[in-house]
Design a protein around this nucleic acid. Sequence first.
DNA 1: TATGAATGAGGCTTCATTCAT
DNA 2: CATGAATGAAGCCTCATTCAT
Lengths: 202, 202, 202, 202
Amino acid sequence: MTSRKSASVRRDDILSATLDIAFKVGPTRVTTGMIADRLNLTQPAIYKHFSSKDDIWAAVATYLSQKINDNVTRNQSETGAPDTQVRSLVLDHLELVRDNPALPEIMLMRDAKGSHAIVQTSIQSSIGALRAALVANAAAAVKQGLFRADIDVNDIATLIFGIIQSLVLRMLVTRDPEMLISNGERLLDLQLSGFMKAGDMQ
Amino acid sequence: MTSRKSASVRRDDILSATLDIAFKVGPTRVTTGMIADRLNLTQPAIYKHFSSKDDIWAAVATYLSQKINDNVTRNQSETGAPDTQVRSLVLDHLELVRDNPALPEIMLMRDAKGSHAIVQTSIQSSIGALRAALVANAAAAVKQGLFRADIDVNDIATLIFGIIQSLVLRMLVTRDPEMLISNGERLLDLQLSGFMKAGDMQ
Amino acid sequence: MTSRKSASVRRDDILSATLDIAFKVGPTRVTTGMIADRLNLTQPAIYKHFSSKDDIWAAVATYLSQKINDNVTRNQSETGAPDTQVRSLVLDHLELVRDNPALPEIMLMRDAKGSHAIVQTSIQSSIGALRAALVANAAAAVKQGLFRADIDVNDIATLIFGIIQSLVLRMLVTRDPEMLISNGERLLDLQLSGFMKAGDMQ
Amino acid sequence: MTSRKSASVRRDDILSATLDIAFKVGPTRVTTGMIADRLNLTQPAIYKHFSSKDDIWAAVATYLSQKINDNVTRNQSETGAPDTQVRSLVLDHLELVRDNPALPEIMLMRDAKGSHAIVQTSIQSSIGALRAALVANAAAAVKQGLFRADIDVNDIATLIFGIIQSLVLRMLVTRDPEMLISNGERLLDLQLSGFMKAGDMQ
DNA sequence: TATGAATGAGGCTTCATTCAT
DNA sequence: CATGAATGAAGCCTCATTCAT
């Protein structure tokens, strides 16, 4: 019944199935059996493509890290105003989470026996890069007189991340990834308006 | 040779151990065996105090819900200025999370058979009450001319929750609950300043 | 709450509760916890009256054996016609089963670790006595020309036991002990009529 | 080092082992561990073939029901005299019990959560069909003047079942299934002779 | 590239039983 | 005569993983 697929396609199928299931039941409850079921495979077949479950999670982490890094790199290569760049970084990240709604929980997934340390480290360092980009753009915005100078640029980044976290939390409760986008833009503008020089507010 | 303890003390011990372990390994990985080990009991001894593992989680949820509700109730009975109340509600909640750092993950804990639905519902409805209190105070602040009138009060609440979430996320990564308090006050003031009428800023 | 009772009363309570529960859930599923619950006692309290669960079953067996033996003895001391005696033995036994409907299953209860061997042995030897009494009376009936002489008296006993077993089986399925009596008399008469000399039939 | 067997063979092995052990220790005491031991398997291996212990019992019940039904169907398709049919139905059933001596106790097996209700229902309804066939043949025998007309056909069936029950009881006590056959024929003839018209008796 | 049978570790839960009070 | 806390053995079931085919 199962269409035999090439190894690389199967690997992608497995990662994709893992992400889907992780969102549905929570990353720690994903079993190799669930993955196999969804792909109409037998459970041991998974082990033809990944040597262990940890290996799957490592690949998932690599995949998600890459996506986060892509976002940062892409935006860095553009030459807009710093506040526009901030906007773009955040909205792109929200889209990434919408498309991979398991990301937040995977990021926090705890290791059995320390094996997931790599997973967290990988994603968290990409998130660190995103934060660094936000800080850099905030600093530029301050320098150009767009943002108030009396706020620490790290705190600006933290508040911006706060929007993301707040949206993510509500998404996890409502189970509706689309709301990230529909509410994100408005809240982001609102937050940014708090950083604007008084004269620029409106 | 464990010291024999009274039932009510043991129940509390179990709940407390559950919260500790939940923070360390993540709520979904807590086993009755871990709880027993930490209390120097055999694993079946747990069942003299709780009829099932679900029963333990239900008690944990009740405990945490109560704490959240207490915070809301306590603050509602005071008669400060609305912006002061907002500050107090948030800081008290951060202290609660510092003392029970497993709370955020428990709130999102998912369960196989949906038996934890009660757990989530209970805590989430308490969080809903906290949000409602923030919205009410924000509305009062707008009415009294303390906050800008051009922001939706629900968005204000969302941004304030954003601070909490952002701090919680960093706490979960750094594993240091104390940072919630040390950073919370500053970020909260910063966030609130964005809501203040222009003339009141600074 | 629990009225403190004298030891001998409690022993009887425990045996009685054991019999009730054995009928309801089957003898092998009776637990000391169930017995304690029914008597509003704590589980270990049972061990003040019986040194082990096996000890309870031994007492139950002694009690039931005694009842069966009483029936045999009582009927042997009477001086009726042998066919009347057979009738009386069977109907009395059916009443005994009606009053102790767990008896049949207890008789067949298998031992964990051979400890119930005593239980079975005790009851089964009483049943053996009942059978012996039936055989003796059947022989007398044949001698007196009441029963056909062409039937082995052991087979007569087996067929009579067949009525009992058949009724017991239906009782176990319908869960209605009263039906033993309401159907027993008619079936017994029918069965006996098959043993009667042709001329005596009707 | 166990010989690896195909799934369908293993399923049958498990059912067969279950029946054997059920006769030896009683159906309620059968554990998945015992089944596995007998097959030189690890206990969880059972769960590759049956999703739960209840599932095993359901399969056992289906198997036994089928056998009982087969007996009824086979006999119904034959065209012998009604009293011959009765004889055949009973003797075939006794052979079935000889080959599956756990049947009687399984039929009465009770379950904690009522999940075995299906087990009992299934077998008991097959037994019901057997009884119905006996009643029908008894009625035909009465109509053809073979059996006495003054006996209720239902009572005839009950007495015939009595033979079976009586034999089963002795078999359970003696633990010797062969005695079902060696004694069954004689007792059955004896019982039937009681139903015969006086003139036909011999 | 996959299947099919099986394992070993570990988790939840029940229950008879002990012992101090 | 009884309670209250606790234990050890055992049972059901899940899951990652192995290995022969």
